[in-house]
């Protein structure tokens, strides 16, 4: 057992150091009020179709802070609620901050959500919100990138079906880096604080 007497302390020191590093690494260094995902998620990247039927990539939003979330226009509860929340936040921000933020509503139900439908849906809530959708392949690639998924329920008598999708809102800085994940449980003040900071990343 001589190794234990002599080496154990060194092992303990190493373990403590490593766990200290891990904690520091996960912590990031910046104090976001909602969920900090700086170390966890890749920068914004996608190829989709916008509400005018044009192909659009993440580059189109370079220089703006971006909020992105997934949904579908037939959504009975989560999406309208999220849309209304976002519209509410934007209303609380000063004009200058508001103009630095773009909100992307990505529909994962391209069969029913054509550009026209998306356009009239997002216009209901706020002019800063843009609807996007794409092919299944494009949507799968994007959702996989942000480690979310979606699926379709069975069709009912009138051909209606439920879509299960993620409920988080991703916040990206103006340089496209992932910064925060806003959950339904995050309170308004925390969100507004982070939105101001995100807007601040856009010159």
């Amino acid at each position: 057992m001589s190794f234990a007497e002599r080496r154990m302390p060194r092992w303990i020191v190493t373990l403590v150091l490593l766990s200290g590093l891990a904690v520091a690494g996960c912590g990031g260094g910046q104090d976001w009020q909602t969920k900090d995902i700086s170390q966890l998620m890749p920068e914004l990247q996608f190829t989709l179709t916008d509400e005018h039927g044009e192909e659009v990539t993440a580059d189109a939003y370079e220089g703006r802070a971006v909020l992105m979330f997934f949904g579908f226009t037939h959504c009975p509860d989560v999406c309208p609620a999220t849309m209304a929340r976002i519209a509410g936040w934007l209303g609380q921000l000063p004009e200058a901050d508001r103009e630095r933020i773009r909100v992307l509503f990505v529909s994962v139900d391209p069969d029913r959500d054509d550009p026209e439908r998306l356009r009239s849906y997002t216009a209901h809530f706020h002019e800063a919100i843009t609807g996007l959708t794409g092919t299944q392949e494009q949507l799968r690639r994007l959702s996989k990138r942000y480690r979310v998924t979606y699926g379709y329920g069975d069709k009912d008598g009138s051909g209606d079906y439920d879509v299960s999708h993620s409920a988080g809102i991703y916040g990206f800085a103006a340089d496209g880096e992932a910064r925060v994940l806003i959950r339904q449980s995050d309170d308004r003040e925390a969100v507004l604080d982070d939105l101001r900071r995100l807007a601040g990343t856009a010159g």
């Binding site: 998924t149 699926g151 379709y152 299960s164 993620s166 988080g168 959950r183």
Partner: peptide, 16 residues
């Protein structure tokens, strides 16, 4: 409800 929030955020392959 709500111990593992991730599954409320991430969406699911079928409505569960």
């Amino acid at each position: 409800t709500g111990i593992y929030e991730f599954y409320e955020v991430c969406g699911s392959p079928w409505p569960i």
